[in-house]
Design a binder for these strands. Sequence first.
DNA 1: TAGTAGGAACCAG
DNA 2: CTGGTTCCTACTA
Length: 151
Amino acid sequence: MDSTTFSPSTTPEIDSVEALLDFIDSHPMGPENWIDFGAVDIEETLFDPTEWLIHPDPNEKVRAPKLYEFLVLLLNNERYSAYASWIDKEEGVFEIHNPAQVVKLWEKVKSRKAKQKMNFDTFSRGIRMYYAKGDMIPTYTRYTYRFASTK
DNA sequence: TAGTAGGAACCAG
DNA sequence: CTGGTTCCTACTA
């Protein structure tokens, strides 16, 4: 509505996807206003919560990404090319260059109430769950994964 | 030693 | 029930 309501100076601390979703819940607004939140510096990387929102269609509620959605957003964001990048985008093949940072990013995007610290073992198990569903194909190669469909 | 695949129990939403 | 998360065994570089 009133765009001044969403200016960075008048919004609370929004440094996670969870905080952003909470704010959007209490302040109805469209994607055009998401840009107004600014970004925070997290471990030498600019983290912008609005980059990690999923909004399939206007009817569906805005939400945090699922794991495969998170991977696609990460891969298609040039700012994170040092974290992970496509090897063959047409074939859906990609490589994770900085596993530790990718896992930290995933934790931040999911805003888990960490019982334990997530590590690459648990993160990669999440990816491997997609093999059985047919959404991903094993590559048997270090830090290398493949989407079954480029869709 | 550190990654990969995948079974099984578990759990928050 | 979904979408992971936690834990673990087996295999390979």
